[in-house]
Amino acid sequence: MRHEIVHKAELAPGYKLFVIRSPQIAKKIQPGQFVIVRVHEKGERIPMTISDFDREAGTLTMVVHEVGKTSKMLASLKEGDAILDLLGPLGKPSEIRRYGNVVAICRQGTAGALYSIVRALKQAGNRVTVIMGAKSKDYIIFEERMRRLCDEVIIATDDGSAGMRGYAVAALREYLKHNHVDYILAIGPTKMMKTVGKIAKKHGIKATASLGAIMLDGTGMCGACRVTVAGSTKFACVDGPEFDATEVDFDELQRRQEFFKEEERLAFELYEEGT
């Protein structure tokens, strides 16, 4: 199967959108699921959430944030190129129910990962508010799409260049002062999701976080992605990636995410030197 890139766009500095032909995965995927990709023969396997899919056209959309060697190599592919290996759909789909008033919170590129989940939540009859955090105005992605889809979009930027000044979690706290919320969904940096978990716990709101655990096979065979939820070990790739945000051990997750930091930096530096 040749997974051809049929469309590519730059959304913000360091964030690329890809539309990839992959009819069978497009047929089966549900909001919240991800794929594992590998981009060259000596490359590693990395997970990418499917932001959107078109079952008729047989395509998948993903938003790639360039953070290291593999994501950078992926982002450098052009229209007409193919992705070497693409496995999916993986993970459990998001739990889509009629919760009532829903807040979905993200930062910069992770708006991509939220997109199809938010759409499904909307279709299920929820009132959906999206809170988008970003470094500055230039890093807000998917704003238009979200506005078309949702009841409300709240923007928060670190420098105040758009929306309110401050982090997305501050906007969430503010929102909760004036609104009743039944369900919070968070996809973003681990620190942000940890704070969301705390806020949700304090308010007694059901909340879910999509965890960015380090993965290898993505099918439950290695345990690299293990996380602690409510005191027991889960595999993020098959039991998740979404878990109860009030029960996740985020500090452990953060530590495990950083375990290969030196190696990742070395790989990235060598790659940058070579290109």
Binding site: R45, G223, E263, L266
Partner: peptide, 26 residues
């Protein structure tokens, strides 16, 4: 590591040849 993770990294992903191969092992 689980035995599987360790061997998967080393054998299938050739982490013993890192950084020629991208998958790390510590």
């Amino acid at each position: 590591y689980s035995g599987n993770e360790f061997l998967f990294r080393v054998n299938l992903m050739k982490a013993y040849l890192f950084p020629e191969y991208d998958t790390p092992i510590k």
